[in-house]
Design a protein around this nucleic acid. Structure first.
Length: 205
DNA sequence: TTCCCGATTTACT
DNA sequence: GTAAATCGGGAAA
């Protein structure tokens, strides 16, 4: 079993570094006694007050964003397009509202449970990676919704563990997705991806 | 109180 | 390739 990431990991004041380091870690939820997990394969960094793509840009504190301003290591969950919940890990000391969006995971534990949550049955025969290869897909599979807003990432409901050491060369950076409004920040390569087949090689599937 | 539109997914043509 | 689904945050009025 892996080791839970310590509080200190989330207190660094550099979401870009944190986003890179979260690649290859394993995220778990335990909802209604059912444990599900996956290895993180895609992340994006949101750099807080200075970042026009970040919800806390300009220090904007609202009911939705207030958790970003607390000490790092919490789940920032919010609804997009009226339909989908997205999950972020908050990063930084108090009053430093950075975060990392988890955009894709490689399913590991509780795969049948995740299939039920996504498809309403465990019969689906799509490639396993399709189960959780999107920011809203993985929240649905992991059973994450508004109830986990603000939940500590060192809790029993949701947490992240050490897992794979991904070689630097296997992590590809690119511009973030869906933030064209962010002007000079839209080109920043603050998105990090490792290919699914690298994960498969490393865990021997 | 009204109005606009989004850090997406899925099912169409 | 385009469009529908569907909620609520937050700015404007």
């Amino acid at each position: 079993m892996g080791k839970k990431l310590p509080r200190n990991f989330y207190l660094q004041n550099d979401a870009v570094d944190a986003a890179k380091k979260l690649i290859g870690k394993e995220i778990f939820t335990r909802i209604n006694g059912e444990t599900t997990s996956g290895i993180i394969t895609e992340t994006e960094a949101y750099l807080g007050e200075i970042d026009k793509a970040c919800h806390a840009y300009g220090g904007k504190k609202t009911d939705r964003t207030e958790i970003l301003f607390e000490k790092g290591g919490k789940a920032y969950v919010y609804l997009v397009y009226g339909l989908h919940y997205l999950l972020n890990a908050t990063i930084g000391e108090k009053e430093n509202p950075q975060c990392v969006l988890i955009r894709s995971i490689f399913p590991t534990k509780g795969i049948d449970i995740m299939k039920w949550r996504r498809y309403g049955s465990d019969e689906n025969k799509d490639e396993i990676t399709k189960l959780t290869n999107g920011p809203a897909k993985l929240t649905q599979a992991l059973g994450i919704d508004k109830k986990l807003y603000g939940q500590s990432l060192l809790s029993r409901k949701i947490w992240i563990e050490e897992r794979l050491q991904i070689p630097e060369n296997d992590i590809v950076s690119s511009p973030r997705v869906g933030i064209d409004y962010a002007e000079e920040f839209k080109g920043k390569e603050w998105r990090f991806v490792v290919e699914d087949n690298k994960i498969e090689e490393m865990i021997g599937k």
